[in-house]
Protein backbone atom coordinates (compact mmCIF):
# COMPACT_ATOMS: atom_id res chain seq x y z
CA UNK A 1 0.00 0.00 0.00
CA UNK A 2 1.49 3.27 -1.00
CA UNK A 3 1.38 6.45 1.01
CA UNK A 4 -1.41 7.97 -1.02
CA UNK A 5 -3.76 5.06 -0.42
CA UNK A 6 -2.93 5.17 3.24
CA UNK A 7 -3.67 8.86 3.25
CA UNK A 8 -7.11 8.22 1.77
CA UNK A 9 -8.07 6.05 4.72
CA UNK A 10 -10.02 7.90 7.39
CA UNK A 11 -8.41 5.83 10.12
CA UNK A 12 -4.93 6.87 9.04
CA UNK A 13 -5.95 10.50 9.03
CA UNK A 14 -7.56 10.22 12.46
CA UNK A 15 -4.31 8.75 13.82
CA UNK A 16 -2.48 11.58 12.13
CA UNK A 17 -4.55 14.12 14.04
CA UNK A 18 -3.85 12.35 17.32
CA UNK A 19 -0.16 12.24 16.48
CA UNK A 20 -0.12 15.96 15.66
CA UNK A 21 -1.68 16.77 19.02
CA UNK A 22 0.85 14.46 20.64
CA UNK A 23 3.70 16.36 19.00
CA UNK A 24 2.12 19.60 20.18
CA UNK A 25 2.09 18.16 23.70
CA UNK A 26 5.75 17.20 23.49
CA UNK A 27 6.64 20.75 22.40
CA UNK A 28 4.55 22.47 25.07
CA UNK A 29 5.01 19.92 27.84
CA UNK A 30 4.68 22.37 30.76
CA UNK A 31 7.88 21.41 32.55
CA UNK A 32 7.50 17.75 31.74
CA UNK A 33 3.90 17.48 32.99
CA UNK A 34 2.89 16.05 29.63
CA UNK A 35 5.29 13.14 30.11
CA UNK A 36 3.75 11.99 33.40
CA UNK A 37 0.99 9.36 33.43
CA UNK A 38 -1.26 11.11 36.00
CA UNK A 39 -1.75 13.89 33.46
CA UNK A 40 -3.07 11.42 30.95
CA UNK A 41 -5.08 9.57 33.56
CA UNK A 42 -6.81 12.83 34.44
CA UNK A 43 -7.38 13.62 30.81
CA UNK A 44 -8.99 10.22 30.27
CA UNK A 45 -11.19 10.79 33.32
CA UNK A 46 -12.23 14.22 32.11
CA UNK A 47 -13.22 13.04 28.64
CA UNK A 48 -15.06 9.95 29.89
CA UNK A 49 -18.51 11.56 29.97
CA UNK A 50 -17.98 13.16 26.54
CA UNK A 51 -16.59 9.90 25.23
CA UNK A 52 -19.64 7.96 26.39
CA UNK A 53 -21.88 10.45 24.60
CA UNK A 54 -19.73 10.27 21.46
CA UNK A 55 -19.94 6.45 21.45
CA UNK A 56 -23.73 6.68 21.51
CA UNK A 57 -23.74 9.47 18.95
CA UNK A 58 -21.67 7.51 16.43
CA UNK A 59 -24.42 5.07 15.30
CA UNK A 60 -26.86 8.00 15.12
CA UNK A 61 -24.56 9.97 12.83
CA UNK A 62 -23.89 6.84 10.76
CA UNK A 63 -27.59 6.80 9.88
CA UNK A 64 -27.19 10.45 8.76
CA UNK A 65 -29.04 11.57 11.89
CA UNK A 66 -28.20 13.75 14.87
CA UNK A 67 -29.17 13.66 18.55
CA UNK A 68 -29.18 17.00 20.33
CA UNK A 69 -30.87 15.65 23.46
CA UNK A 70 -27.95 13.80 25.02
CA UNK A 71 -26.78 16.69 27.25
CA UNK A 72 -30.24 16.99 28.75
CA UNK A 73 -30.53 13.23 29.20
CA UNK A 74 -27.25 13.34 31.14
CA UNK A 75 -28.84 15.90 33.47
CA UNK A 76 -32.06 13.90 33.93
CA UNK A 77 -30.08 10.77 34.63
CA UNK A 78 -27.76 12.50 37.08
CA UNK A 79 -30.69 14.02 38.96
CA UNK A 80 -32.67 10.78 38.94
CA UNK A 81 -29.71 8.74 40.16
CA UNK A 82 -28.91 11.19 42.95
CA UNK A 83 -32.55 11.38 43.94
CA UNK A 84 -32.97 7.59 44.04
CA UNK A 85 -29.75 6.86 45.89
CA UNK A 86 -29.51 9.80 48.29
CA UNK A 87 -33.17 10.49 49.02
CA UNK A 88 -34.81 7.18 48.12
CA UNK A 89 -32.16 4.96 49.63
CA UNK A 90 -32.55 2.65 46.66
CA UNK A 91 -29.92 0.02 46.05
CA UNK A 92 -27.36 1.74 43.77
CA UNK A 93 -27.24 -1.09 41.22
CA UNK A 94 -31.03 -1.09 40.96
CA UNK A 95 -30.97 2.70 40.64
CA UNK A 96 -28.41 2.47 37.82
CA UNK A 97 -30.64 -0.02 36.04
CA UNK A 98 -33.71 2.18 36.35
CA UNK A 99 -31.82 5.26 35.17
CA UNK A 100 -30.37 3.39 32.19
CA UNK A 101 -33.80 2.17 31.16
CA UNK A 102 -35.06 5.73 31.48
CA UNK A 103 -32.36 6.98 29.09
CA UNK A 104 -33.17 4.16 26.68
CA UNK A 105 -36.84 5.16 26.80
CA UNK A 106 -36.19 8.87 26.20
CA UNK A 107 -33.86 8.14 23.29
CA UNK A 108 -36.29 5.55 21.96
CA UNK A 109 -39.10 8.10 22.08
CA UNK A 110 -37.07 10.43 19.84
CA UNK A 111 -36.29 7.51 17.54
CA UNK A 112 -39.90 6.41 17.36
CA UNK A 113 -41.10 9.87 16.38
CA UNK A 114 -38.34 10.21 13.76
CA UNK A 115 -39.01 6.78 12.27
CA UNK A 116 -42.78 6.81 12.48
CA UNK A 117 -43.58 10.36 11.40
CA UNK A 118 -40.47 11.01 9.30
CA UNK A 119 -39.66 14.28 11.05
CA UNK A 120 -36.08 15.52 10.79
CA UNK A 121 -33.93 14.20 13.63
CA UNK A 122 -32.66 17.72 14.28
CA UNK A 123 -36.12 18.99 15.16
CA UNK A 124 -37.27 15.97 17.14
CA UNK A 125 -34.15 15.78 19.27
CA UNK A 126 -34.17 19.55 19.75
CA UNK A 127 -37.63 19.15 21.26
CA UNK A 128 -36.40 16.22 23.35
CA UNK A 129 -33.47 18.35 24.54
CA UNK A 130 -35.83 20.96 25.94
CA UNK A 131 -38.24 18.37 27.30
CA UNK A 132 -35.56 16.37 29.10
CA UNK A 133 -34.03 19.51 30.60
CA UNK A 134 -37.46 20.39 31.94
CA UNK A 135 -37.84 16.88 33.30
CA UNK A 136 -34.51 17.23 35.13
CA UNK A 137 -35.65 20.50 36.74
CA UNK A 138 -39.03 18.97 37.63
CA UNK A 139 -37.43 15.96 39.32
CA UNK A 140 -34.95 18.06 41.24
CA UNK A 141 -37.35 20.88 42.05
CA UNK A 142 -34.82 23.25 40.50
CA UNK A 143 -32.28 22.50 43.24
CA UNK A 144 -29.07 20.53 43.13
CA UNK A 145 -29.70 17.11 44.61
CA UNK A 146 -26.91 16.72 47.18
CA UNK A 147 -26.23 14.69 50.27
CA UNK A 148 -26.11 17.97 52.17
CA UNK A 149 -29.66 18.81 51.11
CA UNK A 150 -30.81 15.43 52.44
CA UNK A 151 -29.23 16.19 55.76
CA UNK A 152 -26.50 13.63 55.30
CA UNK A 153 -22.77 14.12 55.30
CA UNK A 154 -21.15 13.54 51.90
CA UNK A 155 -19.52 10.34 53.13
CA UNK A 156 -22.89 8.89 54.03
CA UNK A 157 -24.09 9.15 50.44
CA UNK A 158 -22.17 6.04 49.63
CA UNK A 159 -22.80 3.31 47.16
CA UNK A 160 -22.68 3.77 43.48
CA UNK A 161 -22.09 7.50 43.42
CA UNK A 162 -18.74 7.25 45.18
CA UNK A 163 -18.06 3.80 43.79
CA UNK A 164 -17.98 5.17 40.25
CA UNK A 165 -15.59 7.95 41.18
CA UNK A 166 -12.72 5.68 42.11
CA UNK A 167 -9.66 4.40 40.35
CA UNK A 168 -8.67 0.93 39.23
CA UNK A 169 -5.43 -0.93 38.58
CA UNK A 170 -3.58 0.43 41.57
CA UNK A 171 -4.85 3.95 41.11
CA UNK A 172 -3.75 4.11 37.49
CA UNK A 173 -7.09 4.37 35.73
CA UNK A 174 -10.34 6.09 36.63
CA UNK A 175 -13.40 3.84 36.79
CA UNK A 176 -15.33 6.17 34.51
CA UNK A 177 -12.58 5.78 31.90
CA UNK A 178 -12.96 2.02 32.10
CA UNK A 179 -16.69 2.41 31.58
CA UNK A 180 -16.07 4.56 28.52
CA UNK A 181 -13.66 1.98 27.10
CA UNK A 182 -16.19 -0.79 27.71
CA UNK A 183 -18.86 1.26 25.99
CA UNK A 184 -16.60 1.89 23.01
CA UNK A 185 -15.87 -1.82 22.68
CA UNK A 186 -19.54 -2.67 22.97
CA UNK A 187 -20.40 -0.11 20.30
CA UNK A 188 -17.69 -1.51 18.05
CA UNK A 189 -19.17 -5.00 18.37
CA UNK A 190 -22.65 -3.62 17.77
CA UNK A 191 -21.59 -1.88 14.57
CA UNK A 192 -19.22 -4.53 13.23
CA UNK A 193 -20.56 -7.83 14.42
CA UNK A 194 -24.33 -7.63 14.50
CA UNK A 195 -27.12 -7.47 12.00
CA UNK A 196 -28.27 -4.15 13.45
CA UNK A 197 -24.80 -2.76 12.74
CA UNK A 198 -24.98 -3.64 9.05
CA UNK A 199 -28.44 -2.14 8.85
CA UNK A 200 -27.19 1.08 10.43
CA UNK A 201 -24.55 1.50 7.71
CA UNK A 202 -27.03 0.56 5.00
CA UNK A 203 -29.69 3.01 6.17
CA UNK A 204 -27.13 5.79 6.40
CA UNK A 205 -25.54 5.00 3.06
CA UNK A 206 -28.64 4.66 0.93
CA UNK A 207 -31.98 4.45 2.74
CA UNK A 208 -33.92 3.67 -0.44
CA UNK A 209 -31.64 0.79 -1.39
CA UNK A 210 -31.87 -0.50 2.16
CA UNK A 211 -35.65 -0.39 2.04
CA UNK A 212 -35.72 -2.16 -1.32
CA UNK A 213 -33.42 -4.85 0.04
CA UNK A 214 -35.86 -5.45 2.87
CA UNK A 215 -34.08 -3.72 5.75
CA UNK A 216 -36.51 -2.61 8.47
CA UNK A 217 -35.47 1.03 8.19
CA UNK A 218 -37.84 2.33 10.87
CA UNK A 219 -36.74 -0.13 13.53
CA UNK A 220 -33.09 0.52 12.75
CA UNK A 221 -33.59 4.24 13.36
CA UNK A 222 -35.54 3.56 16.54
CA UNK A 223 -32.80 1.41 18.07
CA UNK A 224 -30.05 3.83 17.13
CA UNK A 225 -31.64 6.67 19.10
CA UNK A 226 -32.58 4.34 21.97
CA UNK A 227 -28.95 3.23 22.20
CA UNK A 228 -27.79 6.85 22.13
CA UNK A 229 -30.18 7.57 25.02
CA UNK A 230 -28.80 4.60 26.95
CA UNK A 231 -25.24 5.83 26.54
CA UNK A 232 -26.31 9.29 27.68
CA UNK A 233 -27.90 7.79 30.80
CA UNK A 234 -24.69 5.94 31.65
CA UNK A 235 -22.80 9.18 31.08
CA UNK A 236 -25.27 10.82 33.48
CA UNK A 237 -24.47 8.26 36.19
CA UNK A 238 -20.77 9.00 35.75
CA UNK A 239 -21.40 12.74 35.83
CA UNK A 240 -23.39 12.42 39.07
CA UNK A 241 -20.62 10.29 40.59
CA UNK A 242 -17.93 12.81 39.74
CA UNK A 243 -19.93 15.76 41.00
CA UNK A 244 -21.36 13.71 43.92
CA UNK A 245 -24.66 15.41 43.24
CA UNK A 246 -27.48 15.58 40.74
CA UNK A 247 -27.34 18.99 39.09
CA UNK A 248 -30.26 19.76 36.73
CA UNK A 249 -28.11 22.33 34.93
CA UNK A 250 -25.20 19.99 34.30
CA UNK A 251 -23.91 18.95 30.88
CA UNK A 252 -25.22 22.02 29.06
CA UNK A 253 -24.03 21.88 25.47
CA UNK A 254 -22.31 18.52 25.86
CA UNK A 255 -24.16 17.26 22.76
CA UNK A 256 -22.11 19.62 20.62
CA UNK A 257 -18.84 18.36 22.09
CA UNK A 258 -19.91 14.80 21.42
CA UNK A 259 -20.85 15.61 17.81
CA UNK A 260 -17.52 17.43 17.34
CA UNK A 261 -15.61 14.38 18.59
CA UNK A 262 -17.44 12.07 16.20
CA UNK A 263 -16.90 14.37 13.25
CA UNK A 264 -13.24 15.05 14.05
CA UNK A 265 -12.73 11.31 14.09
CA UNK A 266 -13.88 11.24 10.48
CA UNK A 267 -17.41 9.81 10.61
CA UNK A 268 -19.42 11.48 7.87
CA UNK A 269 -22.42 13.57 8.84
CA UNK A 270 -23.95 12.40 5.56
CA UNK A 271 -24.14 8.90 6.97
CA UNK A 272 -22.85 5.47 6.02
CA UNK A 273 -19.15 6.13 6.52
CA UNK A 274 -17.15 5.97 9.71
CA UNK A 275 -17.05 3.98 12.91
CA UNK A 276 -16.54 4.05 16.63
CA UNK A 277 -12.78 3.47 16.32
CA UNK A 278 -12.56 6.84 14.60
CA UNK A 279 -14.69 8.36 17.34
CA UNK A 280 -12.31 7.14 20.04
CA UNK A 281 -9.46 8.84 18.20
CA UNK A 282 -11.56 12.00 17.94
CA UNK A 283 -12.15 11.87 21.70
CA UNK A 284 -8.41 11.53 22.31
CA UNK A 285 -7.62 14.40 19.94
CA UNK A 286 -9.93 16.83 21.67
CA UNK A 287 -9.11 15.52 25.15
CA UNK A 288 -5.38 15.97 24.69
CA UNK A 289 -5.79 19.33 23.05
CA UNK A 290 -7.77 20.63 26.01
CA UNK A 291 -5.26 19.14 28.43
CA UNK A 292 -2.30 20.73 26.70
CA UNK A 293 -3.99 24.11 26.61
CA UNK A 294 -4.83 23.95 30.32
CA UNK A 295 -1.39 22.60 31.29
CA UNK A 296 0.11 25.66 29.66
CA UNK A 297 -2.35 27.88 31.52
CA UNK A 298 -3.83 29.32 28.33
CA UNK A 299 -6.68 31.60 29.41
CA UNK A 300 -10.18 30.34 28.71
CA UNK A 301 -10.92 32.94 26.06
CA UNK A 302 -7.89 31.96 24.00
CA UNK A 303 -8.58 28.30 24.69
CA UNK A 304 -12.06 28.51 23.18
CA UNK A 305 -10.82 30.39 20.13
CA UNK A 306 -7.96 27.96 19.62
CA UNK A 307 -10.36 25.03 19.91
CA UNK A 308 -12.64 26.56 17.30
CA UNK A 309 -9.83 27.10 14.85
CA UNK A 310 -8.46 23.62 15.38
CA UNK A 311 -11.93 22.09 14.96
CA UNK A 312 -12.35 23.67 11.55
CA UNK A 313 -8.82 22.69 10.59
CA UNK A 314 -9.38 19.09 11.66
CA UNK A 315 -12.64 18.82 9.76
CA UNK A 316 -11.14 20.21 6.55
CA UNK A 317 -8.29 17.79 7.09
CA UNK A 318 -10.68 14.85 7.44
CA UNK A 319 -12.76 15.78 4.43
CA UNK A 320 -12.86 12.96 1.93
CA UNK A 321 -11.93 13.93 -1.56
CA UNK A 322 -14.38 12.73 -4.18
CA UNK A 323 -12.72 11.48 -7.29
Amino acid sequence: MNLRELWDRPLARAWMAVALVGVLGCCFHADGAFFRWPTHRDMLRQVAVYGLLACGMTPVILTAGIDLAVGSIVAVSAVAAAKLIIFGGVDPVLAAGVVSLGGLALGGLSGAVIAKFRVQPFVVTLAMMVLARGLAKQLSGGQKVTAYAAGLSPTEATGLLTGLDTRLLGDQLATVTAIMIACAIFTWVLLRRTRLGRHIYAVGGNPEAARLAGVPVGWTIFWVYAYCGLCAAIAGLCQAAQETQGDPDTAMGYELDAIAMVVIGGTSLMGGRGGVGLTVLGVLTIGWLQKILSLNAVPEASRLMATGVILIGAILFQRRKHA
Binding site: R193, T194, R195, R198, Y201, G205, E208, A210, G272
Partner: peptide
Protein backbone atom coordinates in the same frame (compact mmCIF):
# COMPACT_ATOMS: atom_id res chain seq x y z
CA UNK B 1 -31.31 2.83 -10.76
CA UNK B 2 -28.98 0.51 -8.95
CA UNK B 3 -30.12 -0.16 -5.42
CA UNK B 4 -26.95 -1.07 -3.63
CA UNK B 5 -25.36 0.72 -0.70
CA UNK B 6 -22.10 2.15 -2.03
CA UNK B 7 -20.61 2.40 1.46
CA UNK B 8 -21.02 -1.31 2.23
CA UNK B 9 -18.87 -4.19 0.99
CA UNK B 10 -20.03 -6.64 -1.67
CA UNK B 11 -20.65 -9.26 0.98
CA UNK B 12 -22.64 -6.90 3.18
CA UNK B 13 -24.75 -5.79 0.25
CA UNK B 14 -25.56 -9.31 -0.84
CA UNK B 15 -26.45 -10.35 2.69
CA UNK B 16 -28.29 -7.11 3.47
CA UNK B 17 -31.46 -7.85 5.42
CA UNK B 18 -30.52 -11.56 5.35
CA UNK B 19 -27.78 -11.43 7.98
CA UNK B 20 -27.89 -13.64 11.05
CA UNK B 21 -28.37 -11.60 14.22
CA UNK B 22 -24.81 -12.26 15.29
CA UNK B 23 -22.12 -11.72 12.69
CA UNK B 24 -19.17 -13.43 14.25
Amino acid sequence: ELSLVAELSILDNIMLAREPFWLG
